[in-house]
Simulated assay, not measured.
Amino acid sequence: MDHVAVLALFDRDMREDARPDGPGARVERVDKVVRQVGAEHDWNGVIWSDLDGPGADAAIADQVRYFGKLGREFEWKLYGHDKPENLGQRLRDAGFVAQPEETLMIAELGDLALDAQPPEGVRLLPVTDREGVNLVADVHEQAFGTDSTRMRHQLLAQLTGDEDNVVAVVALAGDEPVSAARMEMVPGARFAGLWGGGTVESWRGRGIYRALVAHRARVAADRGYRYVQVDASSQSRPVLARLGFQPLTTTTPYVHG
């Protein structure tokens, strides 16, 4: 993989030319900033920027004022190669709080082995309705120890909207939900995004996460996508590397509000 070329393609497809990730949200392009704006439970934030040193602080202040008037907490999604090089420090100086750093990992679907299956006794259930969304959200709260209210709202809106851009799946051991994940597919883009792969602690290390990655990758391949991308935590990065994903840069959410 040509890392420089693929990263440039990712920036163009998924950031500079971003589309809303759900019904009710909109993407706005203001000067050298691309942002998504939605309701309170939608993801609100800056997706892409092309800033120079002299103009960075003013651009940051503009976004703080804009989302402040809306009464929205928002995120500035910073990538390791974004300019200026001290943009993270400028965001902290403006009152943003950095969340844990993750690694942007990308794989070309033609290079992945997509035959991984869940372990014996575990089955994958496609999520299509509110009951399934609740299973996904419950698993995420157990796996990550975080509140899933926003994700619950957003996933239900995506699944019940007019566009077929999201695939969600929950792994069941008998009737017990033990792992869950979703995939977002932007029409016209070459990248499908794998999100939220989480397994409850007692079921980790049994190949369920790997099976969920393979399941979603097969769907992406069937729908004509060339790449899959993940914002990988330190826990998932080794698994993804063994599957053939390659690290291209880091990504850090900076939250304000």
Rank of each mutant, 00 (worst) to 15 (best):
M1A: 09
D2C: 02
A5N: 07
L7H: 09
R12Q: 12
R12F: 04
M14A: 00
R15G: 05
D17F: 09
G22E: 13
V27H: 10
E28F: 04
R29K: 09
K32G: 12
K32Q: 14
V33F: 06
V34K: 02
Q36R: 08
Q36P: 08
V37E: 07
N44H: 04
W48H: 14
W48D: 01
L51V: 03
L51D: 01
D52A: 07
G55R: 11
A56N: 08
A59E: 10
D62C: 06
F67C: 00
G71D: 03
E73Q: 10
E75R: 07
L78I: 02
Y79I: 00
L87S: 05
G88I: 05
Q89M: 13
R90F: 01
V97E: 12
V97S: 09
P100T: 03
M105Q: 06
I106A: 01
A107K: 00
A107I: 05
L109T: 03
L109E: 02
D111Y: 04
D111N: 11
L112S: 02
A113I: 12
A113F: 13
L114H: 07
P119W: 10
P119R: 04
R123E: 14
L124R: 07
D129T: 07
D129A: 11
R130F: 15
R130W: 15
V133M: 06
V133T: 04
N134T: 13
L135A: 12
V139Y: 12
V139P: 07
Q142R: 14
H153W: 15
L156D: 07
Q158N: 14
T160R: 11
G161N: 05
D162W: 09
N165V: 15
N165S: 13
V170F: 11
A171Q: 07
L172G: 06
G174V: 08
P177S: 03
V178F: 12
V178N: 06
R182T: 14
R182N: 15
E184D: 13
G188K: 01
A189G: 14
A192N: 09
G193K: 02
L194H: 05
G197H: 08
E201T: 11
E201F: 11
R204Y: 11
G207D: 04
Y209G: 02
R210A: 09
R218W: 14
A220T: 08
A221K: 15
G224I: 08
Y225D: 01
Y225Q: 02
R226P: 01
D231Q: 08
D231T: 03
S233T: 15
S233A: 04
S234Q: 13
Q235C: 00
Q235Y: 11
S236F: 03
P238N: 00
A241F: 07
A241D: 12
Q246C: 09
P247F: 09
P247V: 06
P247E: 05
T252V: 13
Y254I: 01
